[in-house]
Design a protein around this nucleic acid. Structure first.
Lengths: 224, 224
DNA sequence: ATTAAAAAGTTACCATGGTCACACATCAGG
DNA sequence: CCTGATGTGTGACCATGGTAACTTTTTAAT
């Protein structure tokens, strides 16, 4: 991807939609930026690492994860092309990544220097408003996550997940978006615990499932 | 507090520090705003309630809490005078309060209409940057909370809390900032469970405590 | 000083879910 | 086709922490 291709991609992005070709070129000539590729499973940013750039995902999928010292993983959210990472760290009073950012596939990322972001904000209201929206939406992702996992049993997490996916996929038969291992990490639990609870739920007549799908039979069935 | 007093208070706030007296007066004449008082324990915003205003705390303390249907409480954070609430909801793609906002004492809040916030952003760069900082800092509060409670035993939560407070209070003897009940809610656990674990930790020689203080003896003592 | 209401401590009971170990299954690369 | 890696199912064991019921202490109000 050469410079002009990059400009074309950017101009089609909502954040940059209000920029003229020349204005954008000018900013990109005046500031540091870098397009980098990351392989699957490569760490893009370590927890506690200092944030110096805002990252725009050009292609691929990226996971934001909370790891504890025992190696347990809690996946907070998955981001993909068009999404922006680290914007909040540029404006906040602390700028260490609070979580690990990990490539989930081959990923292309455009790293944009802090200075450039500040200048882009100065230059263009659409960019600034868009960035505020992006940062604000991050707070909602985090509150959603807290809602989804805090003070819940595994069964409740699964039921909430199934309700959500069933609405999205418009079906009682839910194709798993990823492996069961990933699903366990999304809940921040052991894989074997997920397996066990799914089994129990099948015995209780709530669901049926196989390797790739879960079918809702009766999530509100009483078993007390 | 009359109108002029309010203007004086606002002008001393960092968000408004760059406004002239006249400019601020003009905006406040043109838009809806309301100063309200809330009693201790009064709900300021219910979970899922639609957000129409940004709230500036003029005095008192406010808790943001996550309540589940069984009535368990997880306190996310406490805010006080000068802090801003709801700013992220004004710019995000969803505008329902994800958590309950509760007065912890007698509270005075200035509710500022969405329109006014947008206009203030247009008018004044300091205001807009300040708002971005406020929203960005909210994401850090949330990630900190996830770090503090997810995949942790009660003992680990307590130890982390003690390390943190010991650094803040510069002492091994930690004055509890609130009741043990509040502390339990901060961890999202039962009060009796906190009590039990503190007792165990005392038996294990990690700490000593009474009603108002906890004294660190040796947090790294091994008990396995 | 009296008393009602919070807060705090205590304990037995037991459900949830983490740990570990092992058996299969699936899949990609040589 | 084989093979090693990765995902998945299962079960025994047991620590953690929720529940509930009670007592004791502290606080605040009259």
């Amino acid at each position: 991807m050469n410079h002009q291709d990059l400009m074309t991609v950017l101009l089609s992005h909502s954040l940059f939609s209000d920029f003229s070709d020349e204005a954008l070129n000018q900013v990109f000539r005046a500031h540091y930026y870098e397009k980098r590729e990351y392989e699957k499973d490569q760490v893009i940013h370590f927890q506690n690492e200092c944030c110096r750039t805002m990252d725009l995902i050009l292609s691929g999928r990226v996971a934001v994860q909370n790891l504890d010292r025992e190696g347990n993983v809690l996946t907070i959210s998955i981001f993909q092309d068009g999404d922006v990472l680290g914007a909040n760290l540029i404006f906040s009073s602390r700028n260490n990544y609070p979580m690990t950012v990990l490539a989930q596939s081959l990923v292309e990322i455009l790293h944009l220097d802090q200075e450039m972001i500040l200048e882009l904000c100065q230059m263009n209201r659409t960019f600034m408003i868009g960035l505020m929206k992006a940062i604000s939406d991050k707070t909602l992702i985090l509150t959603d996550k807290i809602n989804a996992i805090s003070m819940k049993t595994i069964r409740q997490c699964i039921i909430d997940f199934l309700h959500y996916e069933s609405r999205i996929q418009k079906s009682q038969r839910i194709r798993l978006p990823s492996s069961k291992k990933d699903l366990a990490q999304r809940f921040g639990i052991q894989r074997s615990s997920l397996s066990r609870e799914l089994n129990k739920m099948r015995q209780d007549g709530l669901i049926d499932y196989d390797a790739k799908t879960i079918t809702i039979k009766d999530l509100d069935a009483r078993t007390d």
